[in-house]
Each structure stands twice: as C-alpha cells, then as structure tokens.
C-alpha cells in the first residue's frame, strides 16, 4: 500500500463512507479565519437587509409580548405559545410550524431570581429559563418532529438608541451567547440563539437544552455582540471565565441555573468528548491574531474609508477583521505610506 493509494482512497470517498468516518469520531473540524467567514456573510440577508420586525397589525401582540414576557411562563400553554415564540416565525418558511408549550420556570428557593449585569451602556438580564416543545414539519415528508428544548431568556436594554438600531439592522453584529461549563474552555458553537427587537429591548432566546446535561456543575451564559470566541473570552487556570481587557462592546457572563435533575454525568462526559470540549486550551493562535490586531490599531491606519456601514464590529476591536488582509500589508510593508492609507487591494470590503 502506497501513500498514493491512500490519497486516492480519500479522494474517492463517497458521502456514506465519509459519514461513517464522521460518525466514528474522526475530527474533521477546521476553524475558519474571521476573514474567511466574513467573506461569506454577504450571502445571508441579515448582512444586507434589516432584521425582520413584527409585521404590521401585530403591534398589540408585540406589546403584550414585551409586557407579559415575565408573567407569560405561568400561563397556560396555549397562551404562552405566541408570547415566547412570536407568530412571525412560521411565516419564514412555508409549511413550517413552531410552537412553544408547557413552559417551566426553574425555581430557586421557590422563585426564579433574574440576574442583571451592566456593560457598555447596556443592562443585560437573565430573565428566566423556559421549556418549550418545538414542532418541526419536515418539508418533504410532511411529518412532524417534536423536540423538547430548554431556553434561557435574556433581555438586553441599551441606553443608546443608536446602538439598538445598529443591532437591529445587523450593521454591527447583534447580541449572541454561548453556554459554558466550569472547567471546560468556552466553545463558540455550544449554543444557538434568536433575537427579537421590541420597543428598545432585545429579547435573546438562547437554546441551552444540551447544557442541562451539565446542570450539576457550574454553568454560565456568556453574552456579547456576535458569538464570543477565544479572541475575547477565556478560561483561567482555576476554570473561571473572563473577558480579555481588550474586549469592547456589550458583554456579560451570567450564571445559568438549570434543573439539576436533568444532569447526567455519563451523557455529559460523552457529549463533551463528542463536541471537542477541552480542559487545557491553547490560546496561542488567538493571542497571535490579537497581537496583530493590536499592532494594526497602534499603527494608526485609518480604516474608515474601507469599513463602511457593512462592517461588523463586535466584541473584538476588529471582530471579523475587515483588516485581515491589511494585516498582510502590515506584515509585509516596511515602508507603509506616510498618509497611513491602506492600498485598497489589500482589503475586502
């Protein structure tokens, strides 16, 4: 058997064979650079169109949603249905239904205590933990698939109306979150969330279903503009989470109290293994990227002509670095132009 045989074997793997390897636990993950992701985001509507508001005629419902969010969870299932998951969602795609039923508040001493943090002119509050059944209708078979989900409801209230507007239009990213387990490094893909923008308040619904497996350990929800990754969010040697000092923009780390009855050590350990949770992260690559960012900022180059309205500035000073290509220029150019203007050919705008 030669190396060429192996190359041809892997080159000719069909989808089923590849799936066999993935299922066997082969690590096929390749982290993308921020530039690589950024260069694809234009394919999503949110990068070019405003985030969809509630349709006209639903004003009453949206006001009710905002006002009754905290009390809705104790109402009967039917009433909660369109409070938690606004009725706009089924309209996103024909033949699709989504309902939230059977809400449950995880109680602490008989009462859920909202947790609030302030950051960058924003008040961030973990309002409640709710449970919902999600009904997906398969577009092709028409069958309904029921999934029970647990959500953390976070409200973000920016003092600055302009910031709210920027998030709403997606021009500078929008709030996102990940859940974290004490002792494991933050994992950027460990949760999914949705945002609703209602009367100056961002309602962020974070899917923390899988986190419940770890509920007998310390759990946290990291909230920031765009998904927090290792360029901004770290775990120290004691297993505690923190944002780097260089981080800018709204961010918070909130305790995430989930139902400890859902904890399952064996399943949790398996989940951690399958999802690549690690206890001793190597931040060196991110440190290198941050150092380049910092060097770029320190160089005083004016990015304004190149950033424009489409730039997503998030937790990192140059999140999704539009300057990724400018870094090459920075690294290569010993005789940077005196006016500090970056040659356009180095930038992707």
């Amino acid at each position: 058997m030669t190396n060429n045989t192996f190359e041809s074997l892997f080159a000719s793997l069909d989808e089923t064979e590849l799936q066999t390897l993935v299922n066997a636990g082969v690590n096929v993950n390749v982290p993308a650079t921020r530039s690589e992701k950024k260069r694809l985001y234009h394919l999503t509507k949110k990068n070019t169109e405003p985030v969809r508001r509630f349709p006209k005629g639903r004003t009453v419902k949206t006001v009710l949603f905002a006002a009754a969010l905290l009390t809705a969870f104790v109402l009967v299932a039917g009433a909660v249905e369109h409070f938690i998951l606004p009725a706009t969602i089924p309209e996103h795609i024909e033949g699709f239904t989504l309902q939230a039923v059977d809400p449950v508040v995880i109680e602490q001493d008989g009462k859920f205590v909202p947790v609030t943090a302030t950051s960058d002119g924003c008040r961030i509050t973990l309002e409640a933990i709710v449970k919902g059944d999600v009904l997906n209708r398969d577009l092709f078979t028409g069958k309904e698939v029921k999934n029970e989900k647990t959500y953390a409801v976070v409200t973000i209230r920016p003092d600055d109306a302009a910031l709210y507007e920027e998030w709403q239009t997606g021009k500078k990213g929008e709030p996102d979150s990940i859940w974290m387990v004490e002792g494991y490094a933050p994992l950027p893909m460990s949760g999914y969330g949705c945002n609703w923008f209602i009367d100056g308040v961002v309602y962020h619904l974070a899917d923390v279903t899988d986190a419940a497996l770890f509920a007998d350990r310390e759990l946290y929800l990291a909230v920031s503009v765009n998904t927090p990754d290792w360029s901004v969010l770290r775990m120290d040697e004691q297993g505690k989470f923190y944002y780097l000092d260089r981080t800018v923009g709204m961010r918070a780390i909130l305790p995430l109290p989930l139902d400890t009855n859902k904890a399952d050590r064996a399943k949790a350990d398996r989940y951690a293994s399958e999802h690549g949770f690690i206890t001793e992260p190597d931040y060196s690559w991110y440190d290198g990227q941050n150092a380049l960012d910092d060097a770029f900022i320190a160089s005083g180059v004016d990015l304004t002509p190149y950033i424009g309205d489409n730039e997503w500035r998030g937790s990192s000073p140059l999140q999704f670095g539009v300057a990724e290509h400018a870094r090459e220029w920075l690294a290569l150019s010993k005789d940077r132009p005196a006016d500090g203007v970056i040659p356009a050919s180095f930038l992707y705008v």
Partner: peptide
Amino acid sequence: LRVWRKDPDRGLRLLIDAYAGP
C-alpha cells in the same frame, strides 16, 4: 438543520460558521 428549517437566514449563518473552515 433545525435552525435552518426555522430561519433559513440564520441557518445559513450557522452553516457558514461551522463549515467555512473545511
């Protein structure tokens, strides 16, 4: 996939985040 079925735009964003690298 589930997110994509609920919200194709957000699903695409997640697809990009997960698979842009490979």
